[in-house]
Design a protein around this nucleic acid. Structure first.
Length: 570
RNA sequence: GCGCCUGUAGCUCAGUGGAUAGAGCGUUGGGUUCCGGACCCAAAGGUCGCAGGUUCGAGUCCUGUCGGGCGCGCCA
């Protein structure tokens, strides 16, 4: 490995990308040098990829390329791996070649195990310190303007814990996409015109009159509060002769509930850029025009007085009504109108975050988008599984109509937004999860979020201590990897952009929480083994402070990506 | 009945076709004259629901099967 610092540009891409390129180059070099034959033109060429081995004894990166080449080459994997390893080490010994790989060895049955050189680690750590804000932003691949629509709960009652999951998933995904270089609009769609709103209005009106709640009406203390706070002028207008009482009261109540929903979401740290009213979509003709558009494309027909979308042409079980025989559009009609409205705003990708109960409508919406001439692939729906809230050993219901549910606000009062975010961020969206409020409260000090925040606070404290002692982090980290504790910490730090890349690609955040926990653990080990603040060894202190500082930045950026605070003390 | 999701340690959950299946909590046993003990180290704990198949290699892919969840409206 060369002693010369690697060019600055080298650190701009994740080390994994650099290693991948090094392996691909080694393969080309092996062919050019005659160590490996050229690959026959008619055989599929395997993709060069590298992975982080689970066992650290296998090095920093491993590649299975040799095993994948065994078949096309009709050669033993170990022989191929040996040829690749030879080229990798030759490149490492070449002073003019910049490669992150210092050593490469072959392990049965044909793994290529590689170890990073100190220079690559140092260059990356230096890049962290140079540009803390940019650390963890990854190169935009196919940069897009994305609309992420989530929560979108009807304004017929307060948000409950189930809505919290959708809220966090949408916000977390938005943050991850932004880190991946995409422009994201967070959007909330609220239904302020349907039958459920009239139903809410009927409930509130009945309560106001002192009548019993209608059979399908809403229950819960919040409807009593709505009835109590209904202004007299709204009431008199709504009950004037010929007035649509349920509709007018429902509209008022929905507006009122929406304000509460916004406040609840603010409590989660979730902010929406755009609130779209379903009534507005209808008023502005989006729904009508979407139906016309389908008709122009020949995907619509009239039968039994209704207008149908020929969804069977796209593999659906049956065709679907879009305009009812009474002339009213269905919910599905509003959905397709909304698709056209969203695309008209210039988004090239639409993401919907829905609960699993909507999975039946996923294909239908995408098909309708395709039928209107949009790219079906540009409409993506992410389904999340249910949350079972457990309290006192029993499952808590989440039925709004029964009025018997844990509201989001109650929930947040008990667990706090950071802990709640961590909980949802660390679980795959498709996993049904049990949330035992009692256990969560009881184990609050053992929760991994506090473990990570503690590591951050601990580093901040060390940096303060160092400043008091007149010690500063080294400006030049060359040679900072003095021993095993330093090397282990640097290795953990440089992994961050890969974790972000994986999060962007998988549209999941659990890799980020796992990484944060791992980095915190690595730092605690570093802290145990390497005294950082030591006035008797200022140069060594400076090196270790630089690493500690890079670790703090990385933890802070990981937490920021999750929307979780990174306290300097706790 | 058809379709989608799901089944991994006592509990809650990870695990992009790779090497000895992991983490946190819980349990047991250790650790600090020193930068934050909300910490660290170690141990115990698994027929990856079950049965076949695909291949150099399967928790991962395919088929079947059993259990759990959800969906199959001119509701939203």
């Amino acid at each position: 490995m060369s002693d010369d610092p690697l060019p600055r540009v080298f650190a701009a891409e994740p080390i994994r990308t650099q290693v991948r390129a090094a392996v691909a180059r080694a393969w080309r070099d092996a062919i050019e040098s005659g160590a490996l034959p050229p690959i026959p033109g008619d055989t599929p060429v395997p993709e060069v990829d590298v992975e982080r081995p689970s066992d650290p004894a296998h090095g920093d990166f491993a590649s299975n390329l040799a095993m994948r080449l065994a078949r096309p080459y009709r050669m033993a994997p170990a022989v191929i791996a040996e040829a690749l390893a030879t080229q990798l080490e030759r490149a490492a010994a070449e002073p003019t070649t910049s490669t992150p790989v210092a050593t490469a060895e072959v392990a049965a049955p044909g793994f290529l195990n590689m170890r990073l050189g100190d220079a690559a680690l140092e260059t990356t750590v230096a890049a962290v310190l140079d540009d803390p804000a940019g650390w963890g932003r990854v190169e935009a691949r196919g940069a897009r303007t994305v609309n992420v629509e989530f929560v979108s709960a009807n304004p017929t009652g307060p948000l409950h814990v189930g809505n919290a999951r959708g809220a966090f998933i949408g916000d977390l995904l938005s943050r991850v996409l932004e880190a991946g270089g995409q422009r994201v609009t967070r959007e909330y769609y609220f239904n302020d015109s349907g039958g459920q709103i009239r139903n809410l209005g009927a409930t509130v009106a009945a309560l106001r009159r002192g009548d019993p709640i209608p059979e399908d009406g809403y229950k819960g203390t919040y409807v009593d509060e709505l009835a109590d706070s209904l202004p007299d002028d709204v009431w008199s207008t709504a009950t004037a002769p010929g007035a649509d009482t349920d509709g007018l009261i429902g509209k008022w109540a929905a507006g009122r509930v929406r304000l509460g929903i916004e406040a609840s979401l603010e409590g989660l740290g979730v902010h929406f850029d755009v609130w779209t009213s379903e009534a507005r979509l209808h008023d502005e003709g989006w729904v009508t025009r979407a139906v016309e558009r389908l008709r122009e494309h020949g995907h619509v027909y009239d039968q039994d007085g209704a207008v149908w979308f020929r969804s069977t042409a796209f593999g659906d079980d049956k065709d679907r009504v879009i305009l009812r025989s009474n002339g009213e559009p269905t919910y599905f009609a509003a959905d397709i109108g909304y698709v056209t409205e969203k695309f008209s705003r210039g988004f090239d990708h639409l993401i919907y975050i829905w609960g699993v109960d909507h999975h039946g409508t996923v294909a239908r919406l995408r098909n309708a988008a395709g039928a209107m001439g949009y790219d079906r692939e540009a409409v993506q729906i992410l389904l999340y599984a249910w949350v079972h809230v457990i309290r006192d050993g029993g499952q808590v219901s989440m039925s709004k109509r029964r009025g018997d549910f844990v509201t989001l606000d109650e929930f947040l009062g008990e667990v706090g937004p950071d802990a709640a975010r961590w909980f949802f961020a660390s679980r795959a969206v498709t996993t049904e999860i049990d949330f035992d409020i009692e256990i969560f409260k009881k184990q609050t000090n053992e929760n991994p979020v506090y473990y990570v925040q503690y590591a951050h606070a601990r580093i901040a404290s060390i940096l303060r201590k160092a400043a008091e002692a007149g010690l500063a982090p080294a400006g030049d980290v060359t040679g900072a990897l003095l021993g095993a504790p330093e090397a282990a910490l640097a290795r953990a730090i440089v992994r961050f952009p890969e974790v972000v890349e994986d999060a962007v690609a998988s549209e999941e955040t659990l890799g980020l929480t796992a990484y944060a926990t791992d980095l915190a653990t690595t730092f605690h080990g570093f802290y145990r083994d390497a005294r950082v603040v030591d006035q008797d060894a200022p140069a060594r202190s400076a090196s270790r402070l630089a690493l500690a500082s890079a670790a703090r930045i990385t933890l802070a950026n990981t937490l920021a990506l999750l929307g979780i605070s990174a306290p300097d003390s706790m």
